[in-house]
């Protein structure tokens, strides 16, 4: 087996008396897309921030390609829930700034590359707009273009769609789905279970700063017996898997049926078919 691309060993982070991460081991191969799921406060975002080097560890270590990554060394890129675009710069300037200042590219070359990146996320036409003149989904796509432009070898997505409505969520997820297909190594924290199920090759379930389940996405969603995960997934399904007809029966979808959650069968369906919710079409 090749040495892992990303190796996190016994990651521990405490703030005062609070344990945020309680000894997390994670190894990721090149090209893998790992979905991190779990309840709020389970340590998903902290794990990403520690891998990126934004939050200090109190124990353990992170290696990417055998080396400890430092913020800004070009190893790790991150896409944030709050986009974090710089409001005084246009979309194109947001993407080009690091190319010019960090990678020392000439102004024209940086601008050209920035426009190519914006084109890749479908926003070339809005290159001269400022963040305030863009929708949330467009802002997040600019943020993705900005991260891609400096070619990090590992990209972390920290709840990239958590502040977007369902429509904008879809446009952002489509971009991320496209990236996954190009063989980029990515860690994606998301509450979009359907997305994680269909895009991630592997899913990791965290709770209270520990990894409870780690395995191929399909089996984590469908077969894992871990009770905390079952409870987590069932509340999710209760929330999103409503019946189209209020009179239609819902309950048979809710418990973990022996065959697993039908949600997961959509994992096998081709990308772009939307949220793979298997709500039975009750012949109403």
């Amino acid at each position: 087996m090749t040495p892992p691309f990303l190796l996190a060993e016994k990651l521990e982070r405490r703030v005062g008396d609070t344990q945020i991460l309680g000894g997390i081991d994670l190894s990721v191969q090149k090209g893998e897309v790992v979905g991190l799921i779990g309840p709020s406060g389970s340590g998903k975002s902290s794990l990403l921030r520690c891998i990126a080097g934004l939050d200090p560890l109190t124990g353990g270590r992170v290696l990417v390609e055998g080396r400890v990554p430092m913020p800004g060394d070009g190893t790790v890129g991150m896409v944030f829930q709050q986009f974090n675009l710089w409001p005084h710069l246009t979309a194109q300037e947001n993407v080009a700034l690091a190319l010019r200042l960090a990678l020392r590219k000439p102004r024209a070359e940086a601008a050209e590359r920035a426009r190519a990146m914006l084109d890749r996320v479908g926003l070339l036409k809005l290159a001269d707009r400022r963040p305030a003149q863009l929708s949330g989904g467009q802002q997040q796509r600019v943020a993705i273009a900005r991260t891609l432009a400096v070619e990090p070898r590992l990209i972390l997505f920290d709840e990239p769609t958590a502040s977007l409505d369902p429509e904008l969520t879809t446009e952002v997820l489509d971009v991320i789905r496209g990236l996954a297909e190009t063989g980029l190594t990515m860690l994606v924290v998301s509450h979009e279970m359907g997305f994680v199920a269909s895009v991630a090759s592997r899913a990791v379930f965290l709770d209270h700063g520990k990894v409870l389940v780690d395995g191929p996405a399909r089996s984590v969603f469908r077969d894992a017996a871990e009770p905390r995960l079952r409870r987590f997934l069932s509340t999710y399904l209760q929330r999103v898997a409503w019946a189209p007809d209020p009179a239609a029966a819902v309950p048979e979808l809710l418990p973990a049926a022996p065959g697993g959650f039908s949600l997961l069968d959509a994992a096998a369906s081709p990308p772009g078919e939307g949220l793979p919710l298997a709500v039975p079409k009750s012949g109403a």
Partner: peptide, 24 residues
């Protein structure tokens, strides 16, 4: 987050202050 994004993209502290924080 505006500073964190800049740092991850490779900007140094002087650049972050001069090109992002002060204009912002």
């Amino acid at each position: 987050g505006h500073t964190e994004a800049a740092r991850l993209l490779g900007l140094d502290t002087r650049q972050i202050i001069a090109r992002i924080l002060l204009p912002e």
